[in-house]
């Protein structure tokens, strides 16, 4: 039994390694083709994030949001529900938190901050929960409905940020700045890394225990692995079409709030852009294991940081990271690369 586990872990690791290697190879290839100074671009893409403390700190900072959204997706996927609306949920969380903090300029930081975070979580949970609800009630495809809802939400928030919530005192399309008391402690200056990274790591461990040991976690996993079996055994499977979606949305809303409180201190257009999609990538590469979400989020933050460094120091553009990410998406579920190991995730309709 143990040998079995080790073997499956090994093939899983080699598969992952192969996936990442192929993704990097494609990026290198693209740099070689497109860049006039490929050596420089490649150097900064891979080493850049470690060349300055500032870059390193920002990279770590970026992983925070990814941990939250990655956890949100991992919980949804483990329960075989599909949340493709992470982008909109995170964005809505960011905006709701911003609005609350702006509305309470004189509240103590802890009270107002907590209110903002809770509201953001509820908002994300509500939007994702809607898709969950439709799926539960009428069998509406959650994957497509969550995407469409999120797409609509993003546009509406764009309008809010650039319209009614716009800060008239500056020329940028942003909301006013949130009060000092709401700004999370920066722990690695001058970078933007803030204290919430500790919180994210603790939450990842907590989520792991929640999924493995708690009542809801067990029932959700059973539904995720085999809905027919869960129903037969008397587990309320309808409920678990909605609950994991709402939890997942809550994680995304939280991510949005933290990004505003820790990094930007204001709502701006596209403040959480990419967190949703990257969250899916993080969960996939972590094989939906909440603890593995931590390194997976660090890895994707590294990809972004590398692409950003390469952009700053050479002639390539930041979107190289999204190509690498796409390649990982392409290959991470490819069973042929993962040898015998086959978790047979049921990610079909």
């Amino acid at each position: 039994m143990n040998r079995q586990r080790v073997a499956s872990l090994m093939s899983s690791v080699t598969g992952l390694f192969l996936t990442i290697a192929i993704a990097f190879a494609i990026v290198v290839l693209m740099i070689l083709i497109l860049s006039d100074e490929p050596g420089r671009a490649i150097y900064y893409f891979f080493i850049g994030p470690f060349t300055r403390a500032y870059y390193l700190g920002n990279m770590l900072n970026q992983s925070i949001g990814l941990m939250f959204t990655g956890l949100g997706i991992a919980v949804a996927f483990k329960s075989s529900t599909f949340n493709l609306g992470g982008e909109g949920q995170a964005y809505s969380g960011a905006i709701v938190a911003t609005v609350i903090m702006l509305a309470l300029p004189n509240m103590p930081g802890f009270v107002g901050g907590t209110a903002a975070i809770v509201a953001a979580i509820l908002m994300g949970a509500f939007i994702a929960g809607l898709s969950g609800f439709f799926g539960m009630k009428w069998g509406t495809d959650q994957l497509i409905s969550s995407f469409l809802l999120s797409a609509a939400v993003i546009l509406i928030i764009n309008y809010l940020v650039t319209g009614p919530l716009d800060d008239p005192t500056n020329s940028m399309l942003t909301t006013p700045r949130i009060g000092q008391q709401y700004q999370l402690l920066r722990i690695f200056k001058p970078s933007k890394l803030d204290i919430s990274i500790v919180f994210a790591a603790i939450l990842a461990i907590g989520t792991y225990f929640f999924m493995q040991r708690s009542h809801w976690g067990y029932e959700m996993r059973m539904c995720g692995l085999n809905r027919e079996f869960a129903k037969y055994a008397g587990i309320n499977v309808e409920k678990y079409l909605m609950v994991p979606m709402a939890i997942s949305g809550g994680f995304h809303g939280l991510a949005g709030a933290i990004v505003v409180m820790g990094t930007h201190y204001r709502g701006l257009k596209g403040v959480t852009a990419g967190l949703g999609w990257n969250g899916i990538a993080v969960a996939l590469i972590a094989k939906n294991n909440p603890i593995a979400v931590i390194p997976a989020a660090l890895f994707f933050a590294y990809l972004d940081a590398g692409a950003r460094a390469a952009m700053l120091h050479s002639d390539v553009t930041f979107e190289l990271a999204s190509i690498a990410r796409a390649m990982i998406f392409f290959l991470v579920t490819a069973q042929a690369l993962y040898g015998l190991f086959n978790s047979k995730k049921k990610v079909t309709k």
Binding site: M30, L34, S35, F82, L84, L143, W277, I280, L284, V316, T317, E319, L320, A321, S322, I323, R325, A326, M327, I328, F329, F330, L331, V332, T333, A334, Q335, A336, L337, K345, V347, T348
Partner: peptide, 27 residues
């Protein structure tokens, strides 16, 4: 052929297209 999850590879195609077109346009 590589037996990947078609829903994830579909997302990958979208992300890839998004990245590739911008990278090429920029370059």
């Amino acid at each position: 052929n590589l037996r990947a999850n078609i829903f994830i590879t579909g997302l990958a195609t979208n992300l890839f297209a998004e990245g590739l077109t911008v990278v090429l346009a920029f370059q």
